[in-house]
Design a protein around this nucleic acid. Structure first.
Lengths: 196, 196
DNA sequence: TTATCGCTTGAACGATCGTTCAAGTAAACC
DNA sequence: GGTTTACTTGAACGATCGTTCAAGCGATAA
């Protein structure tokens, strides 16, 4: 075993994050990982197999960070900070503004059934993470008692998805920061009646 | 000239919308348009050239629909209706829930410089369309005078982008409808101070 | 009639795609 | 020591990619 597993996944993550599943060719992967095709296939069975591990690792990582937000002294403040760091990173890490999962959703029909399942399950996991944050905010009195947790969690995740696409197109951070501010305002604001 | 131009663009739009630029192979295009490669290249120079025309036509169409919203008797009501129809179509037209432009943004690095330019310019055009709607709402007294039009327009477009990704993952329309309701609430709600 | 033009056809091109495979290496196990 | 196992190498495979091109068609212009 010449190559370190975590290091491989990390490098592969960067590549898939930058280029997407389809656009990242096997020869790009071989170069990025400094591995020959046989090694890659012996370990990961296929390009999709490698991608699946990348997705799972990425989701696990994201989940951990959401958990930290939920367990913070001020979940609402931590949430703001989480949004800010995720959306306004330096320009050379611009690709990171896009959520790898969301990016993958755009390729859902291409990436194969196994990876597709991993992506969708990861989205569910993260939704639960957002819900924990909402509930933590309510518990700490940072959000009103009557905030509909399930709806708010979906909404929050959705805002995050939209904002990542938004931030990707922005040249400066001011517009993005204003959007985050608006999210925080709306989070504390009214919610529609559930009587549909 | 055997094939009708508008018909070609329409069929190509459907294909690109369903599959994306990259995943729509020339042989898929040939089949969808019932044209041979030579014909396609004689008319459109390249796959990218065809795609560029598709994008421009799509943007033009979208712009027209936004204009109708802005010019409606109740722009706010028309806006709601616009969101609803765009996001909760029948299942066999599920691909239409995704905005072709947003989908293309995910492929921005792949589609080539000419098409890239067309996509980004179209996004700007649509942003202006959203702004017209906001201003029409203010003028008709459906939104408060002090609503920051520029910010609100960006926000609205952003909500639309996020919701399209959201709607794509939903099995039933209830969750999507609730999200639209929340958008309408927040649109009338508070806006962050511009003092950043 | 002849020339020109835009459009059409379909075979074929070179490049690239994901993947396979025979062969080799090094550590682990019996 | 011998066998197994996990991993490595790099050439090569068949398939598919976007694109080209010689040839032909039909309408228009001279």
């Amino acid at each position: 075993m010449k190559y370190d597993h975590d290091e491989i996944i990390e490098k592969a993550t960067t590549l898939f994050w930058q280029r997407g599943f389809q656009a990242a060719g096997m020869r790009d992967i071989q170069q990025a990982l400094d591995m020959r095709p046989g090694s890659i296939y012996a370990r990961f069975q296929s390009k999709e197999g490698l991608f699946k591990l990348v997705i799972e690792q990425y989701a696990q990582n994201s989940e951990k960070r959401l958990k930290q937000v939920a367990e913070a002294e001020s979940p609402l403040g931590a949430l703001y900070h989480f949004f800010e760091t995720a959306l306004t990173g330096p320009d050379e890490q611009r690709y990171m503004r896009q959520c790898l999962l969301v990016k993958s959703i755009a390729e859902l029909d291409i990436i194969g059934d196994i990876a597709k399942k991993a992506v969708l399950e990861s989205m569910q996991t993260l939704k639960a993470g957002f819900r924990d944050i909402i509930e933590a905010c309510i518990e700490k009195g940072e959000l009103p008692e009557q905030t509909p947790a399930k709806l708010a969690a979906e909404w929050l995740q959705n805002q995050f998805v939209g904002l990542r696409a938004f931030a990707l197109m922005q040249d400066e951070n001011l517009a993005t920061t204003q959007m985050i501010d608006k999210v925080m305002v709306d989070l504390k604001g009214q919610w529609p009646q559930q009587t549909h």
